[in-house]
Amino acid sequence: MSQVTMTVNGKEMSGDAEGRTLLSQFLRETLGLTGTHVGCDTSQCGACVVHVDGVAVKSCTMLAMEAEGASVDTIEGQAAQDGTLNALQQAFQDHHGLQCGFCTPGMIMSAADLLKSNPNPTEAEVRHHLEGNICRCTGYHNIVKAIMAASGQDVSSIAAE
């Protein structure tokens, strides 16, 4: 065990980690930030996506120790202090982009990453970007729609919500 310190959602936090402790596990169990989810053990579902130094990372593929000193952003830090959802979160609610909510934190963090580099993605670009995020509930329809809407595009012509 050794101490790991990182800045999480703007706040410095530290805790003990073993050499094999994954960042996802550290966030959930040591820091109590359970918004980051774990849906697989082969790095494929994307439920665990967070941003490390501004880059989207599957937190199950990174050791907690590798994040020493890094700046980590998780789903818990996305809304404003008073709880107001950010534009992307709001678009997911407006367009019913979630059902059980389990994939949602990863979807939001992954989509935020896309919109940063591509503020006006096409449908195909959104779908391609979500290659590493599995959702079992929504059939992706409303997720894709929500992300396009969050980018300011008019999605009203896309079939029913």
């Binding site: 918004g35 989810h37 789903i75 818990e76 996305q78 709880g83 997911f92 609610q93 979630l98 909510g101």
Partner: peptide
Amino acid sequence: DVRFLSGTGNY
């Protein structure tokens, strides 16, 4: 959705 979108669900 509000709790699911802000990481405060209780799974």
